[in-house]
Every structure is written in structure tokens, then in C-alpha cells.
Amino acid sequence: MRIGILYSRVRRDEKLLLEELRDRGHDVEKIDVRKQRFGLESTTANVADLDIVVDRCLSTSRSLYATKFLDSYGVPVVNSPETGDVCADKAKNSLALAEADVPTPATEVAFTKEAAMEAIESFGYPCVLKPVVGSWGRLMAKIDTRSAAEAILEHKETLGHYEHKVFYVQEFVDKPGRDIRVVAVDGEPIAAMTRSSDHWLTNAAKGGTTAEFEIDDRALDLVERASDAVGGGMLGIDLMEVGGEDSGEYTVHEVNHTVEFKALTEASEVDVPARVVDWLETKAEAFAADAAGSDGDAIDADAEDADAEDADAEDAADEVVL
């Protein structure tokens, strides 16, 4: 297959993916989005005849626009721009999960520091303030007191990009020193790990230690539903245990659309890149089958049109005869 990979930085994750793709004999087209232009009808990127393109852009904004443009040209791309749009924004992410009845932490969004302060006070202390766009646990604030809340809100309002004035306030979930990351493809888990830390932020990027996690039926169900809620794809679904470790009850706090899997590869026995490439091959085949089906439909429609024209001609001839 000819498989494209959108990137702007080759991390260990992309290297693992490239290695697996090449080992299987796929023709890989690396597309550095920083060097390309995207027009309304075409792009400088060499996307002709690609069976599928996988988005591995490190930058969320580039990821969203590049996938949107490729999708508009009819290039099969994963994850879809629709999935990216929901996952890239924590507010949209929370709404999608809630709309799908997936348990997710109580959340409020406010647009002024006064309204945000009211939201914080209504949650009580501690609660959490997050940027709507961001990753790796950056700029997350656990707010323990009113005076801390006042200071953080003032800083965000004064110093931040306009998106920092979208105040995303969330209940603090007292997790048991760890959360759970599941990497799944269209709702089917590839592998899962716990991320543990003494700090309230347990992200691997923040130095959390990882260990393989065995997914139970409840988590399995939530992963599938969370994936559906955001439109499916290759996703990193983050869960917290509610009511203590091994309680079997979870809340889903986030779904990530350009998921990193390096840490999971190290924590798990599963060959994650191999499973990802299995899925890419399946998706490419499905896209090709859909395209062939659409062509078939178009041919059928053309044939129907031709039949109708023939019938009209016959009617016209009949009219002449008559």
C-alpha cells in the first residue's frame, strides 16, 4: 500500500510506526506539513494515489487544518478532521462524552473571570482549571483556595491567548494516585497502562511511572462508547478510577486524537505499532471498498440515466409515430 504520514516532528512514536510500515513493505510518503501548501482544490503535498494518510502532527492546529484539507480532496485520512475537532478541544470533548452518557467529570465553561470564580466556588476546593487546548498536563491548575483561584484567573485573563479566557473548570477527581491510558482503534483496545505519580498530574509526559493495565468489562464498554462519542479512530482514552483502585468504576476525562504510544509500547507486552499498522491496513481497505462502491453507484446511476434517456427517446419516437 501507499501510506502517507503527516508530521512536523518525528518522535519515537513516528519512528516505530515508520519502521513497522516499511518492514511490511508499504510505500511510505512522509509529509512534513511545514513544507506544504494547501489550496482549495489541491496541495503541494504528494498525496496522489495514497491508500491512506495517518495524521501524526505534533501541533494541534496543523493537525486540524491539514486533515480537513486532505479530507476535502477526497484523500482517506485518519483520524478524521471531525474526530480531531472534538478531541482537540476539552470543552467539545466533555460535551461529546456527556451527550453519549459516558461518565465524565463535572465541568463548566465560563468566559469571564467573575463567572469562572462562581464556577470554582460552586465546585468547591480543590477543583481544576484547564486550558481548552493543550496537552501533556501543561498549564493545568489544581485550585486549593479562593486566593489561588483569583490569582490564576487574573493571570490567565491578562497574559493568555484568547483561548485562555475560555475558562474550563472541572471537579477534582480524587483518583488513587494513578489514571489509565487506553490506546484503542475504533473502540477496540490495543493495550492499556496505568500512569502513577505522587503528584496530582500523572501524565507520562510529567514523569508518571507506567505499568500495564488489564482492561475489565466496564472499562472496555466505556472505551468503546467514548470512541464512538468522538467519531472513532486511533485514540488515547484516559480514565480515572472512581472510588479507589480496582473499584471497577471509572470516569473518562479525556480522549486524545494524535495519541502517543511510546510509553505504552514500553509498559505493555503488546506490539503496539504492529497493531496500529494492522488497523491502518484495514482502514485503507475499507476506504478503497467504499470508493469502489461509490464508483459502482455512480456507474449504476449513469446507467439509470442512460436508460431513462433511452426511454424518453423511445417515448419521443412513439410520439412521432403516433
Binding site: 494541534t60 494524535t258 495519541v259
Partner: peptide, 23 residues
């Protein structure tokens, strides 16, 4: 450092981390 080319191998200082980077 970012690898810019392979033949010959050239390196440049990698871009600074930006706010929308992540997963």
C-alpha cells in the same frame, strides 16, 4: 536538534515547544 537532511546529514536547532503541541 532536528535532522534536516540525510545526504549529507545536517542538523538544525529544533523549534521551541509551542502551546498547541501535544496529543
Amino acid at each position: 536538534l532536528e535532522v534536516i537532511s540525510l545526504d549529507p546529514v545536517t542538523l538544525e536547532e529544533a523549534p521551541e515547544l509551542e502551546e498547541d503541541w501535544g496529543e
